[in-house]
Each structure stands twice: as C-alpha cells, then as structure tokens.
Amino acid sequence: MKISKSPWILHYDGSSCNGCDIEVLASTTPRYDLERFGIINTGDPKHADVFLITGGVNYQNRDVVQQLYSQMPDPKVVVAVGICACDGGVFKDCYNIIGGVDKVIPVDVYVPGCAARPESIIDGVVKALAILDKKRERMAQGLVPDEKVWTNTIVRPGSQEKQED
C-alpha cells in the first residue's frame, strides 16, 4: 500500500501493565524501526495523527484519554494495542477497569496480544494509515471524518447516575 503522508504517533498508557508500552517503544527502535515509514513517536497530541493506546483505562485515566483524543486534530485514528485495550484482558474483572479503550473513545484498529508483538503493532499502525487516508478523503468532500457515529455510556460501579460521554 502507499503511504501518502508521514503520520506521527502519540503513545499513551491507559492503565496497562507496561508490557505493551515497551513493545510500542521497541517497535520504533532499530530492530523493528517504525520510523522507516516516516512515522515518528511524538509527545504532543496536537502534532499527532495516530493515537496508540494501551491498557483497559481506569476511571481516573478516562478523562486524560478523552482529553488527549480531543486535542488531536482531525483526521485522526486510534489504535488499541494489546488485549487489555481491546476489551480489558486479564484485568477485565478488576473493580477499577472500564474494560477497553472503545468504552471511552472511538477505536479504529484493534491489535490483540498480551503483550502485542512489535510486528503486530506495526501491522496495526499500517492498517490505521489506510483508515486515516479514507478519513482525509471524507473531510476533503466536506463530510465528517468518521462514518459511524460513536456513542457510549459508562456507569461507574456502585453509582446510580449515568454519565453521558
């Protein structure tokens, strides 16, 4: 496939065990070298196109994740790295884990594995780039970047009130 731009990635640890985070970092280092695609790991959400996020997201981290997501300019794609980020994984039954990144922000690509291997992370990012291109085209036509409308409601265990996110 062709990569039309040099997309930059933002990496954030959404309550993971760290295993997937070091694999994300490892995939940017010489052995796997994500940078050969012109992909750079940036620390600034305002420069980023791809959001790599690991972990099942806990209640304190939810706001941070949503804020980072909202600071990224459109078009943007989200890659959930690791089985925790996909659906909570081994921590699914923990009292503090919301259980999956897609409960707090829309996710475009899911990379399974515990820990996800660098090869599959790179594969996930490359898949995300195709989606990024599609979103860019939609924006050029004056449409909203996402085809589907994302809605989700989370209820904190123990509390009655429903929060609209």
């Binding site: 640890d13 309550s15 065990c17 972990g55 806990n58 981290n61 923990c94």
Partner: peptide, 9 residues
Amino acid sequence: FVHRGLEKL
C-alpha cells in the same frame, strides 16, 4: 492513573 486493583482479583 494505572491503578487496576489486581490484588483484589
């Protein structure tokens, strides 16, 4: 930010 509460598991 990373508290998962795994001891309780």
